[in-house]
Design a protein around this nucleic acid. Structure first.
Lengths: 191, 191
DNA sequence: CCCATATTAGAACATTATTTCTAGAACAAA
DNA sequence: TTTGTTCTAGAAATAATGTTCTAATATGGG
């Protein structure tokens, strides 16, 4: 099988997030210093700087999307509320990935030079979410703009007050719920 | 008096915002291409890359703070609501600066290498806002966390759904107001 | 007009970053 | 043990970026 790795992808991705938030940029040299992994190993694993950054972004997005889409399907008293609350929960469950999800832009990690296969992966991931939200809107009768606001806009804005640095308090969830109800309930077709 | 400038600070700051959002980074070379201003002129005006970026950030922050603080003092039916709505209004009134305010982090524009005078300016600006929000909380009896959420967290999360690219719709303000009322009104000492 | 001043201009230089490359280490199977 | 494979390691080569510098351009006042 050959030699075993001495480092995990996640170690490197976490360092990427920390550096982006702290320095506003990611240098290969900084990754080497921050993780203790040698340059050669990084290039062996990720091919290029662009590849490394893109995979960090896709890793984060994938982890969040999995939870978000599962929650969106979940039935509940208030449709979609569970999905809205998935954002603060994700921040507590995966603080390293949350740094990337909440504090960074896609354009910091992916560009036109990103390997094509990874660009395609991103497009596919985005498509899945768009399809799911569209279905949610058709099912509930909610306008797309309202759904986006309650499901993503408000929750993201809320957790961003704490990241990076502080943990996202449990009490925040109740406030996100208030905001969600305030914008969503008036638009729900009363069943 | 000497020769007159052929470019304004704002031209350059706007380019900085566009590039950060588009490329995730700011190269001096890109600023030259994007603005048509020569490298020499940029260094003459701003001293260094760090200085240029910091001044772009301070310029944006100053413009927003001026409006926000004025709105926060303004009396109204619901205390603070005008300040909460200042975020979407700022995005419409100053779309270039909004790009920096809403889509970028401070760490992308200022670091430990930033000229000390500009670091001090930032600290002073942040202090002024913190003092004002503290006073607002004392005056209304609102917990700080709730005030931050309603005044900043939710409005910022909302406009971020549109920037960069789309203009922030007027209709969004009503939704921000709903969210603001939902989290703030229950906590207001009934007068 | 001529001087002092402020600004522009971009080539040359210095610095810093990314990438490649070669040698060697760890591991599994034959 | 030998062999094939995968991974580590970091110095060297390559590429790119930030900065300086000198000359030239524009403007207003004496």
């Amino acid at each position: 099988m050959g030699r075993r790795s001495t480092f995990s992808d996640d170690d490197v991705f976490a360092a990427v997030g920390r550096m982006l938030v702290r320095d506003g940029e990611v240098r290969m040299q900084s990754v080497v210093e921050e993780t203790g992994v040698s340059v050669g190993s990084l290039y062996h694993r990720f091919g290029s700087r662009e590849g490394l950054l893109a995979r960090a972004w896709l890793d984060t997005l994938g982890a969040f999307h999995a939870r978000f889409l599962a929650a969106l399907d979940q039935p509940g008293e208030v449709p979609g509320l569970a999905a809205a609350l998935e954002t603060p929960r994700f921040c507590r469950a995966e603080p390293d990935k949350a740094l990337i999800l909440v504090c960074c832009r896609r354009s910091e990690l992916m560009s036109d030079n990103t390997p094509e296969a990874l660009q395609a992966e991103l497009a596919a991931a985005n498509d899945r979410v768009m399809v799911a939200i569209d279905a949610f809107c058709r099912h509930t009768g909610l306008p797309l703009e309202i759904a986006r606001l309650g499901l993503i806009g408000f929750p993201l804005g809320a957790v961003k007050l704490y990241l990076p640095g502080e943990p996202v308090p449990e009490a925040l969830d109740a406030e996100i719920e208030r905001a969600y109800r305030a914008v969503v309930l008036p638009r729900l077709a009363s069943s």
